[in-house]
C-alpha cells in the first residue's frame, strides 16, 4: 500500500493555512484599531468548511483569456464583522473581541501543529519499521 501524504495529513495541512490567514487578518484588525473608517474583517469558518464538503461547481477555463476560478479559496470567505457598537470615526474594530479571537486562533494553530507533528512522527515510525 503506497503511503499518500495527502491522506496521512488529512485536513490538518489545509487547516494550518486557514489559521495562518486568519492570524494575518486579525493582526490587521488589531493594527488598524485606531484608523478612521477601517472595517474589521474575519473569516467565516463555517462557510469554508461547507465549501470544502460540498465541493462547489467549478468553471473551466476553456480559452486563453478566461479567468481561472478557484472554487474554494480561503479569501472567498472573508467578510466584514458586524460591529457591536457604532463609533464616531467609522471604525468597526472591537479590540477586546479581536484579541480574544486572536488568542483562540493561536491556540487552534498550535493544536494543528501538534497534530501534524504526531502524524509525522507516526510516519517516521512506519518508515523505520523498528
Amino acid at each position: 500500500m503506497p503511503i499518500n501524504f495527502d491522506k496521512a495529513l488529512g485536513v490538518h495541512d489545509n487547516a494550518l493555512l486557514l489559521f495562518e490567514r486568519r492570524n494575518q487578518l486579525l493582526a490587521e484588525n488589531i493594527t488598524n484599531a485606531d484608523t478612521p473608517n477601517y472595517k474589521a474583517r474575519d473569516i467565516d469558518f463555517d462557510s469554508v468548511l461547507r465549501g470544502q464538503q460540498s465541493g462547489q461547481l467549478a468553471m473551466t477555463a476553456t480559452r486563453k483569456g478566461h479567468i481561472s476560478s478557484s472554487t474554494n479559496t480561503i479569501d472567498q470567505h472573508i467578510d466584514y464583522r458586524v460591529p457591536t457598537q457604532s463609533s464616531a470615526d467609522g471604525n468597526s474594530v472591537d479590540v477586546q473581541q479581536e484579541k480574544a479571537a486572536f488568542a483562540e486562533n493561536a491556540v487552534r494553530y498550535q493544536t494543528t501543529v501538534a497534530i501534524l507533528s504526531r502524524r509525522f512522527s507516526g510516519l517516521t515510525n512506519a518508515f523505520k519499521g523498528e
Binding site: 494550518l16 495562518e20 492570524n23 486579525l26 493582526a27 488589531i30 493594527t31 484599531a33 485606531d34 479590540v95 484579541k99 486572536f102 488568542a103 493561536a106 494553530y109 498550535q110 501543529v113 501534524l116 507533528s117 509525522f120 512522527s121 517516521t124
Partner: peptide, 29 residues
C-alpha cells in the same frame, strides 16, 4: 494611554505570531 495600549496590542500580535512560526519550524522533529 490609548496609544501605549495599542502599541502593546501590536507587540503581543508580533510575539504570538513569532511563537507560532517557530513552532511550525519545529514540525516533525
Amino acid at each position: 494611554i490609548s496609544a501605549s495600549r495599542s502599541y502593546q496590542n501590536n507587540v503581543e500580535v508580533l510575539s504570538t505570531s513569532k511563537e507560532l512560526l517557530l513552532r511550525t519550524l519545529q514540525l516533525g522533529r
